[in-house]
């Protein structure tokens, strides 16, 4: 292209640049769209293969590892057994085991946000999202059944009821760091309220109540519900005593 002087030339060049840019953007957009489409095909095909040919894939170790690699790369969950008749009736087969793994995985992934306490309904929705192909097939009852299969591995995973809601707790008391945070919080005044815990640590109400209840059970906290403002206070004699009693002695 010959460069022409003058304002008209500049305007032309700018217009051409704009055109190129527009075209480039278009191509880029089409490219992403196409890739998404192909990725979707790739994913759905992999999912279908994982379901249909599971046993054949497992027979060939070399292919199996390649298959897993593909699944990992494009983000396909290789665990996709259908519930099937026998699983429904007797609870046998891989379905509930696979569901169990997926449930624990979701609990693990959401633990940073919720401290290992998740609403059963929310959990169920996330499982359904994972298993897009048979949406709706996984019920809350299925989740409960899958969780009960994990009982063999100790009591670290349990379903608790808070009010009408059912919550799944994936962190055992022994490993729960939430309690430490409450204790730290309580050090200031010697007591905390549910509201305070929720506000200061930005937890959900279920999480705070559950942690405080456990501390009550453990004998670390004492409840005082006779205060003037009508809010329950959880006193922690264990944290306050060192500072207060020693202070009084001096």
């Amino acid at each position: 292209m010959r460069r022409r002087p003058g304002i008209g030339g500049l305007q032309n060049a700018a217009a051409a640049r704009d055109q190129y840019r527009l075209l480039g953007e278009n191509v880029a957009r089409i490219r992403t769209d196409l890739m998404k489409e192909q990725l979707t095909t790739f994913r759905s095909q992999l999912e279908e293969f994982a379901r249909k040919h599971k046993n054949d894939i497992r027979k060939n170790p070399a292919f199996r590892s390649q298959f897993h690699e593909m699944c990992t790369k494009v983000g396909v969950d290789p665990l996709a057994s259908n519930k099937g008749f026998w699983a429904e009736l007797l609870g046998i087969g891989d379905f509930y085991y696979e569901l169990g793994v997926q449930i624990v995985e979701i609990c693990l992934a959401t633990r940073p946000h919720n401290g290992g306490l998740i609403n059963l309904q929310e959990l169920c929705n996330m499982v359904r999202q994972r298993r897009k192909n048979d949406r709706g097939a996984v019920s809350e009852d299925d989740c409960l059944r899958a969780i009960s299969k994990l009982k063999v591995l100790g009591s670290g995973f349990e379903v608790i009821s808070v009010g009408k809601k059912k919550l799944v707790r994936s962190v055992p008391t022994e490993l729960n760091k939430d309690h430490n945070e409450i204790l730290e919080l309580a050090q200031a005044q010697g007591f905390v309220t549910v509201n305070e815990v929720e506000r200061r640590l930005s937890w959900t109400s279920g999480r705070a109540t559950d942690a405080l209840d456990t501390l009550l059970e453990e004998g670390l906290a004492m409840i005082d519900d006779g205060h003037r403002d009508g809010k329950c206070r959880y006193w922690f004699p264990c944290v306050s005593s060192i500072s207060s009693s020693v202070g009084a002695d001096m």
């Binding site: 169990g100 793994v101 624990v104 995985e105 693990l108 994990l150 591995l153 100790g154 670290g156 995973f157 994936s170 962190v171 055992p172 490993l175």
Partner: peptide, 9 residues
């Protein structure tokens, strides 16, 4: 220290 159920997953 890690929970056995986490390891299972």
């Amino acid at each position: 220290v890690i929970n056995l159920i986490d390891v299972y997953c």
